[in-house]
């Protein structure tokens, strides 16, 4: 004999009227509802023709910021790589004559692994790696999923939205 407790008490049901019990008319009501939707305006975005411009808070593909003088901001500290939960980022540093002393020789983000968490952006105080608006990531080969410096470096001007957003959120 099953006991009735707080957790397994029987579900209470509303008493149905005869009209509702007949069911048939309720079906018709449902059919009418769906029929009305046939003529509603559609939500579909015709993707390749109509593209979406994400807001500044959107977390797309992480990119490296390229300063106006053609040098990347990144100092290859490896904090992004350290904090990256799926181990998607690999950084190999080397020395440069510039004031910043070090720069990334190899900076690879494995976009097959990236989970767009934005930790890499958050961990770095100088905003050298930020989340871009790029969401169009499709590869025909797994090797294309590994983004090297050549594809990661993005001029600062293109990332203005995100950099402004970060500056705003920081204060």
């Amino acid at each position: 004999m099953p006991t009735t407790s707080k957790y397994n008490k029987p579900a209470t049901r509303r008493k149905l009227s005869l009209w509702e019990k007949l069911y048939l008319f309720e079906i018709v009501r449902g059919l009418l509802t769906t029929f009305k939707h046939l003529f509603r305006p559609k939500f579909t975005r015709q993707y390749p023709e109509e593209r979406w411009d994400p807001p500044a808070s959107f977390r797309g593909r992480p990119v490296l910021v390229l300063e106006e003088n053609g040098v990347e901001r990144c100092v290859a500290c490896g904090l992004c790589s350290r904090v990256c939960p799926p181990l998607a980022i690999e950084v190999r540093a080397s020395e440069t004559e510039l004031l910043k002393e070090r720069y990334p020789v190899v900076f690879e983000i494995n976009m097959l692994r990236c989970i767009f968490c934005g930790f890499c952006e958050e961990v770095f105080p100088e905003e050298a790696i930020v989340m871009s608006k790029d969401y169009e990531l499709a590869f025909t080969d797994p090797s294309q999923g590994i983004y090297g410096k050549d594809r990661l470096l993005t001029p600062k001007a293109q990332l203005k939205d995100r950099l402004d957003f970060l500056a705003k959120m920081r204060n």
Binding site: T34, H37, L38, F39, R40, P41, K42, F43, T44, Q46
Partner: peptide, 10 residues
């Protein structure tokens, strides 16, 4: 088509 229209798609 009908499926899409009922769900407000194209």
């Amino acid at each position: 088509w009908v499926c899409a229209w009922v769900q407000d798609r194209i």
